[in-house]
């Protein structure tokens, strides 16, 4: 019988301050704040977890705003014909997932559900189904929300093996939906 294992984690900024995650320092330091928060929540969640098969670790993110700081920099230059391609390639909402994959070295799926609490149920179901799809796989589901003007909070859960996905879906939804309140 499969065993259900869930590990929860979180990360929040205060006063808009956020460091470059250690895991990105020698790879790419230019992640938007929202992407950094996602990475740091993921790292916190996996801190005491062993034996994860990174080849089959999926990253699924839920976030409404995307990389607003990077988008602003790109938008501001356009009228003056000033490209900001460095920010542009790092400004899609998918970067919350792909930077997390980059930081962890995860080779499963990596994508973002853009939306708020409304899409959480779909994201949770998807994370559970993806974990069932490939034996030995795991999925890291990260919910990132903006708090006030400059702060972010990310709550996350690592899902490994599924025994009763309906019960687990409710448990995960209840836990992660708090980030939107």
């Amino acid at each position: 019988m499969n065993q259900t294992v869930c590990h929860y984690g979180s990360y929040a900024t205060s006063n808009g301050k956020i460091p470059v995650p250690e895991q990105l320092k020698d790879k790419d330091k230019r992640a938007d704040t929202a992407a950094r928060v996602a990475v740091l929540a993921a790292v916190q969640t996996l801190e005491f977890v062993n034996n994860i098969d990174l080849t089959a670790l999926n990253i699924v993110v839920v976030n409404r705003e995307g990389c607003t700081a990077h988008i602003r920099k790109v938008s501001n230059g356009i009228a003056n014909h000033q490209p900001a391609q460095g920010y542009f390639v790092r400004s899609g909402p998918q970067t919350l997932a792909t930077y997390t994959a980059l930081a962890l070295g995860a080779h499963g799926a990596a994508f973002t559900f853009v939306g708020d609490n409304c899409v959480l149920s779909e994201a949770t179901s998807t994370a559970l189904y993806l974990t069932q799809l490939i034996p030995g796989s795991a999925t890291l589901l990260i919910v990132v929300a903006k708090k006030g003007e400059a702060d972010y909070q990310a709550d996350s859960v690592l899902i490994r093996q599924i025994e009763n996905s309906n019960k687990l879906e409710q448990e995960i939804n209840n836990h992660l939906s708090r980030v939107f309140t």
């Binding site: 839920v62 998918q94 994508f111 853009v114 899409v119 779909e122």
Partner: peptide, 14 residues
């Protein structure tokens, strides 16, 4: 309508 899948140029496949 609840959300958008974003995975850059793979979004439509995903």
């Amino acid at each position: 309508y609840k959300g958008v899948i974003s995975s850059a140029c793979s979004s439509g496949t995903d």
